[in-house]
Design a protein around this nucleic acid. Structure first.
Lengths: 226, 226, 226, 226
DNA sequence: CATGAATGAGCGTTCATTCAT
DNA sequence: AATGAATGAACGCTCATTCAT
């Protein structure tokens, strides 16, 4: 049951794959401000540097894979909810968002970096493949939204998801510039930058969704509109 | 009028300051995918490498200064409109946004990078100072918004600006990851990533503002909701 | 006739041996500028990487073996001619040289590399063994030369072969540095480096042999001395 | 007079240039079988690694420059002799060859490597420039030879130099494979490979020159012809 | 015999920053 | 003030070889 010395079976390989992602994740959590070196990742995973390259074509693709694992977690949950029987309202979506994107400390810092990677270090082929998989998820989730929010015209679900994600990410960057670095957070921030990312995001998403679907969540934390 | 060999007067110094920003801007326009090296900036400005450090404490702060110059352009225009006599509606704000942020090819790529810098390479002190100046602008503009859009409660103007900026930036990154690289753009993108940044942004901002102020612009390009 | 899955018989082993040399040869022909990696050789031969090491102690020794196969082809032909009945003159030797060393696209690039290997990566034992086999061939061929060119004193045949080979190889390197890279060849070479290897070699060998045996070939292409 | 901390004057720069070549030379002498790393060269020169790149665009070009310095030494001496008043015969040329190429322990091992570099790691532009300078020297020396050896037709001097160099280099490689590595030399070499490079080269060059100019040196050591 | 997963040493190059001149 | 020579840390990736299966 333990990990063999050599991953011969496909499952063992998958296990190694995940182990490397786990290692990168731990390092990223430990010091979120820097990208770990390949040597560190290998070390943390208890493998040799060269072994990393048996599982990922480059450091960047490893990071992309880690991001995709995070994203997949969110979408799996979202689609499960949308495909399920229960009632779905904005508050439910918001809760999912918090659970999978806002609270896990890794999701957003990594997501922010991934955009940089995509346009630079990831070969076009991989980038396209990644996007195709993302597009599938987006379309399924978008269609699900349209089923639950009947005011959404066909295609608007996907667009709403895109805009929401942009808001989540953009706002995190503005907050992150504030909140990420403890040293900075310690000093007195100007009032305009004193906002809790979680709360502010709820307000923003609520406003966006209200503008699109005409419905408002009674968000856990009051946002723009109390 | 020509640049003096030695900047002794305060104005000369300011001139050099701007000349360096101009040089960095030209380089960034010339190849937007990469951050120019200090040597290149100095060269482009006709100065020696060391001289750059007489005017900026680090390369990052130079970039931040360039970004702030861009931002200032937008805010000056925005505040001028808000403080002016004419009628201000959402369409007007959108137009300004396009003019100062979307169309200038430098604004958004630089803005996206600046967040990365803030949490890493900029000393807390400079970051705070930058934010204080930003906060001033945001507050003035936020207050102006509240005067023109009477449904906005006190403080909501500033929040709306923040959310809008998050949307602008986040969406650009999502589009940029798609559109920036010509090689990638050439190949068939999945439908979910085929969207024009300009149009999509209008839709998103319209939705957001509609959700907050209850008003819709007859945007130049129709967005999510016509 | 097909290659067995496991080489149990000695002949099967020899077959694998040759198959690996063939694979290396094909790769070297395909891209002569680079030494193929073990993985590529194994792949090209349809075997696993580790299997290569069942047949050759190292990559370098594989290359040496390939070179020796080439060399053997030349010597077999040369000795056949020298041991045969027909008249042998310098022109005949030159023709053989062209046929086995100059025209095959692999011989000289590989030969040039082998010297590098010998002084570095080949263990002394293997190097000695290789040389012993070479010495045998050289002595037989040298003796043959002495029978046909009666002005050659005992031992001079071998020396003449050695000098000829040095000339062939040295000149190829000088030409190769010029001719090998198409990009370089395209640009205007200085006149001193504009020479056709084949013709120039004939001139040089003719001069050398004339100096030693006092006879000149009516070479296919005129050399230094027509 | 001592080397300043910083090479500001052009002469100081040239001094640094030479110092780096000297350092590389010392390292190459110390262990001729391996190419020194840039770090080692810098260290040996008492400079930082990065400083090397202020003086040479790449490690390969540094090695090429070192080789050219060696070559230039030979040509300077050769041309001086040819342009001088004294009588010039083959023996004189041979003596020069020994003095500048055979005896200095660095010349030939480096020369052998340079051919490899030229076709791989040196950018075409640099390679061409190097060859142009070489061509100049060759032409001057070739013309000088034609003045002294009246049986040489125009152009044959240069060709003879080329063939001689090929012989020198090719023979060294054959011998070097033998002689370079002490471990190998220790064991009993087959007779065919037991030859002293210096003597054998004299024999070969004598034969070549005899074949071309019809004259023989009474070489210090008898070669092919006793 | 055959496989192919794992290893890990090895290195050139960039470039922001400093500081002697 | 201005210069530009000097610094040196930082790091991804390849690939020959080994050895568990």
């Amino acid at each position: 049951m333990a990990i063999r010395q050599r991953a011969i079976q496909a499952e063992d390989k998958e296990e190694r794959h995940q182990a490397l992602l786990d290692a990168a994740e731990r390092l990223l959590l430990r010091s979120p401000e820097r990208v770990p070196s390949v040597a560190e990742v290998a070390d943390e995973a208890g493998l040799a540097k060269g072994t990393v390259y048996l599982y990922f074509p480059s450091k960047e693709e490893l990071l992309l894979a880690l991001h995709e694992r995070n994203v997949q977690g969110f979408f799996r949950a979202l689609i499960a909810v949308l495909d399920g029987q229960g009632r779905v309202d904005v508050a439910r979506i918001l809760a999912l968002t918090h659970e999978h994107m806002v609270e896990p400390p890794l999701f957003l810092p990594l997501a922010a970096r991934v955009f940089g990677l995509m346009s630079q270090s990831i070969p076009a082929e991989s980038a396209i493949a990644f996007k195709r998989r993302m597009a599938d998820r987006l379309e399924r989730a978008g269609a699900g939204l349209e089923r639950h929010f009947r005011t959404l015209a066909p295609g608007e679900g996907l667009v709403l998801l895109r805009h929401s994600y942009a808001l989540i990410l953009g706002l995190w960057q503005m907050a992150g510039a504030t909140g990420a670095c403890p040293a900075v957070a310690a000093v007195d921030q100007p009032a305009a930058f004193q906002f809790s990312y979680g709360n502010d995001l709820d307000g923003a998403l609520n406003a966006l969704w209200r503008g699109v679907v005409g419905e408002t969540a009674s968000a856990p934390a009051a946002g723009t509109r109390p």
